[in-house]
Design a protein around this nucleic acid. Structure first.
Lengths: 215, 215
DNA sequence: TACCAACTTGACCAATCGGTCAAGCGATGG
DNA sequence: CCATCGCTTGACCGATTGGTCAAGTTGGTA
């Protein structure tokens, strides 16, 4: 034998099962982001993934099924990232960190953000339950922390939920509406420097708006 | 004669030409907003407008054509609204007005906002020219005004373009992501009071962030 | 009355798409 | 060597959809 392969359970000829699935999922994210759910075709996804369409349907029973997986992946990524930040206790540091974290996700995973945005814009038919339970709970918990900061006089009084919405909106816009932002900046694409300027501008305005003086 | 009608050019049996076209455009905006370009079907649009599909194609040659009209209507509305604001000269008043204006548009015309958002998310294939010319020019002009404010020490130094992006993002999110916002607020739909709270929160944070003290 | 232009509409078609299927392939184990 | 199992794939199908068409209908006009 030339070498001992390491088949997880069974081996196969080209790549292993998980590799192919990941390839399809990645292609699906890209195509769903670019064309929307209905506009995406399993044929195009398969082509981008480099597999025949029938093979795609071997790993994912239906297009809807595949879409659900893509959505779930994205939501999990975001949620895992959000957890990392939950512990910070100083308002300035916490908000600054969160803004930069979300901005980095917009930079690194814009396609996922677009798929998510698409889903929400169309009424979130597949995520409404998640929004009303998991996301709402997380938001409420975060809002309570913000209210504590307000009660302690550490930040000015603002509506905590709307503050969180504001942070989501301003950071995700650099992924979802990246084309528009780039256009008004006179560029073809957003670069690292633009994200750095965005982070500076956002944190400055929001933090100063929250911290400056007493009420 | 019972009454003298006023046929624009020629009369017809049910409604006049412009009325029917407006009906179709309104239905199209709704269906495009809900299902995206590809997901929208001319059949559904026609049904919602109360005309046979063939009649829809009599007034609008192709689906793409109809979509262009919907987009143009929205862009024109926004641009007309933006012009109304251009003259205000005091930073605080100007920004407060602009935020409330855009928030009102999100409240009153969320479907148009969603169609626009959809188009941008998918790479703005039909609007990239508009973004790079008309919108960029308007943005640059506005940015110059903001830079004057900064030079005059009337607001703190921030990147003017990113400030404008911030205002767009925060206000349009209440239209495009209304379902998500409502969900984390624990409601089924956003109400007038929510838009008022949003306006308060946004203007407070942004204005205080811009105005507070010297640098 | 006769005619015409604008408008309406049901029936229809070609193209696309999601999904199926059966035949085939490669490797493992007996 | 053969049987089996997981995987691959080209060909195919029914359903949907954008768009067409030809036969109407309506109302104004000469």
């Amino acid at each position: 034998m030339a070498s001992a392969r390491k088949p997880a359970l069974k081996s196969s000829k080209s790549g292993n099962r998980e590799e192919t699935q990941a390839l399809i999922l990645s292609a699906a994210e890209q195509v769903f982001a670019e064309f929307g759910y209905k506009g995406a075709t399993t044929g195009r996804i398969a082509e981008l993934a480099g597999v025949p369409k029938a093979n795609l349907h071997y790993y994912f029973k239906t297009k809807e099924n595949l879409y659900h997986q893509v959505l779930e992946d994205i939501v999990n990524t975001w949620f895992a990232a959000a957890a990392e930040f939950d512990s910070i206790e100083d308002p300035e540091e916490a908000i600054s960190h969160y803004v930069r974290l979300k901005l980095r996700l917009s930079r690194e995973r814009p396609l996922g953000s677009k798929v998510f945005a698409n889903e929400i814009i169309h009424g979130a038919p597949n995520l409404i339950g998640y929004l009303r339970t998991t996301l709402k709970d997380w938001t409420d918990a975060k809002a309570r922390v913000i209210e504590q900061w307000i009660a302690q006089g550490r930040i000015r009084p603002v509506d905590p939920h709307h503050l969180l919405v504001m942070i989501w909106a301003t950071t995700q816009t650099y992924a979802d509406f990246g084309v528009q932002v780039a256009a008004v900046l006179g560029k073809d694409d957003l670069e690292d420097a633009d994200f750095e300027t965005a982070a500076e501008t956002l944190t400055r305005i929001i933090l100063r708006g929250l911290l400056a003086g007493a009420d």
